[in-house]
Nucleic acid binder design. Structure first.
Lengths: 197, 197
DNA sequence: CTATGAAATGACAGCTACTATCAAATTATG
DNA sequence: CATAATTTGATAGTAGCTGTCATTTCATAG
């Protein structure tokens, strides 16, 4: 019984809280909205709010793209070079978005752009994902999971995306933006060329 | 009169607060120490504490290395390739540390390692420094300050350092660690090789 | 040296995110 | 239906942080 009444109700409450929060945030702004208001709008007690989301920030931050991306990278043909596989994997995930998903995703990203604390935690979350990404990359390279080269490559990729992709878009990014990351990586490669041991 | 009595007293108070905080943090732990305790130990009121440091975290996070690093990079010979200039510039800054500075720096880093919120904000601060670094890098490349290639390169460098340098050391990093970054960058370059436009 | 203005400080009050506890209500199970 | 297990809400409390205002401390002009 993975979907008893209990589970269904929990999912419903969770969605209700998130929807209420997003609505209030876009209506009155993030700072001006209290957790109490969110709870009231979602018809739960503040206690319950904190049982579903550990902080006020988390109600917006929660996304579950990471596992999807990891799997999409794994699904790339073995002949594809690592970096291409990563780029294409991400692309695949976002290409699979429905119209509705794009809308709410762009709304989320709009919040991240405006509220500094949210942007900070969003970037932090991306940094935390380095470990996971490094794992898949290590797989593809046939090296141990904690290989320094794999970690370095992952850090470079994530660093480029954070520095280059995010600030560059006004209306949230689309799937095409990964082409720009490719171009950026090529220019990075050229600057690394003069490095000699 | 850049150093009247007023300025000197302010600097003293600032140092007193920071010292008291660091002492209490290492003695009782970060979470167990309240701002009130810090203020009391530094013999100021809590109000005054918040006039000097906007949050409880900032009392540990504040460092002023960024401008030093930027200048050190600028001082590298023009013939040095960008990436080498950046690495050597950072190296120069940390080579210039006194014994005493290393001790308090390592104590700071120890806190970052243990307290998640601090580590998060520390990394965030590093990410925020991308803009500044990108500026110097753009200078050296003779491109406009917001050049995409410069930003991308900067992101890659910072990404590698965050992913590779930080978790790898148990006792805070030393100047030599930048050699490891060099090696890591070379391995990154190899993985970027198969990228074709 | 004193008077005047500016800046720094402290005391106080208040808001809100977040935690802990425990009793009441809801759902699963035999 | 009865009993056990979860979920929920009410309540109280802590602490980070903000704002205000009177008081003190320092700078400068006369």
């Amino acid at each position: 019984m993975t979907s008893g009444l209990r589970e269904r109700k929990k999912a419903k409450t969770r969605a209700a809280i998130r929807d209420a929060a997003m609505r209030l945030f876009t209506e009155q702004g993030y700072a001006a909205t209290t957790v109490e208001q969110i709870a009231e709008a979602a018809e739960v007690s503040p206690s319950t709010y904190f049982r579903y989301f550990p902080t006020k920030e988390d109600v917006v931050l929660t996304d579950d793209y990471d596992p999807l991306i990891v799997e999409a990278i794994r699904n790339q043909p073995a002949s594809t070079p690592v970096v291409e596989a990563v780029l294409q994997g991400m692309r695949d995930v976002f290409d699979g978005f429905t119209e509705e998903e794009w809308i709410s995703e762009h709304r989320r990203q709009a919040l991240f752009r405006v509220v500094p604390e949210l942007r900070a935690r969003q970037q932090q979350q991306t940094l935390d994902a380095v470990d996971m990404l490094a794992g898949v990359i290590a797989e593809r390279l046939n090296v141990p999971a904690d290989d320094a080269g794999a970690r370095a490559l992952t850090g470079a990729l994530v660093g480029v995306m954070l520095a280059f992709l995010y600030p560059h878009n006004e209306a949230g990014f689309h799937a095409d933006d990964f082409d720009r990351v490719r171009t950026a990586l090529i220019s990075v490669r050229e600057h690394l060329a003069p490095l000699e041991p």
